[in-house]
Each structure stands twice: as structure tokens, then as C-alpha cells.
Amino acid sequence: MKFTTRGTEPQVIGVRETRIDSAVAIQFKDTMRETLSPAARRVILDLSEVEFIDSSGLGAIVAAKKSMAPGQQLDLAGLMPMVDKVFRLTRMDTIFALYPTLAEAEADAPPRLAGGTEG
């Protein structure tokens, strides 16, 4: 599982894979855990190379979000049509901010940094 990372605020993690499926879901979770910066309040996951995601891959991204500290936010950028569709069909668009491109995600002010106000 190849990732790239740059910056800390926001931290941009790029997934350099074309598929996030059941064959790599566990590896994805592990690599995310190692890559996530505990210092970043906002993390943008760049999915622009991902052509296919299944429910295992979706679960792995949800697990990554749940592994983050309170006050950290995970946004998703560069979703190809089928990836976008999987997130919307499962209503995960209500949990994650979805941006068509990384540029749009970076240009957007953090919309709702959770800042420990949950619950």
C-alpha cells in the first residue's frame, strides 16, 4: 500500500493505489495509522488515483477516522465517480466532507473542525 504525505496543517495523505478493496483493507488501516500525524487538526485524504472501492475499503476509511483523536478531522478529496457513489449510497457523505478535487479541498476553509465539541 503506497501512500504519500505532505504538510501538517492540513496534512495531505495521497493514496497511490487504484483499488481499496478487501485484499488491502487491513494494510490500508495499518498504513493510515502509521501515516496520520497526531499534530494535524485537519487531514485530507487524496483519493484521486483510486478507481475502485468496495465496502471493505469504505470500512477501512471509517476505521481510520475513528482512530483519530477527538478534534482531528478527516476530509476526502479527488473522488472518482464510482468512489463518490459508494460514499453517497451508504450516506457516508453525511460523515465526511467530500471534495471533487484536492485543490478544492485545500482551498476550502476547514468547514467544521470538530474541536472536541462532539456529544
Binding site: 465496502s55 469504505l58 471509517v62 477516522k65 449510497l89 451508504t90 457516508m92 453525511t94 462532539e118
Partner: peptide
């Protein structure tokens, strides 16, 4: 139902899809 972020389901989407 998707409620809170601590209790999000990580599976169970397959048959729904």
C-alpha cells in the same frame, strides 16, 4: 443509522449495496 463518530459502523454495507 450513522450517529456520532465513535460508533460508526465499519462493516455491514455489502448487502445494503
Amino acid at each position: 443509522p450513522l450517529v456520532g463518530s465513535g460508533d460508526l459502523p465499519e462493516g455491514g454495507f455489502g448487502w445494503y449495496l
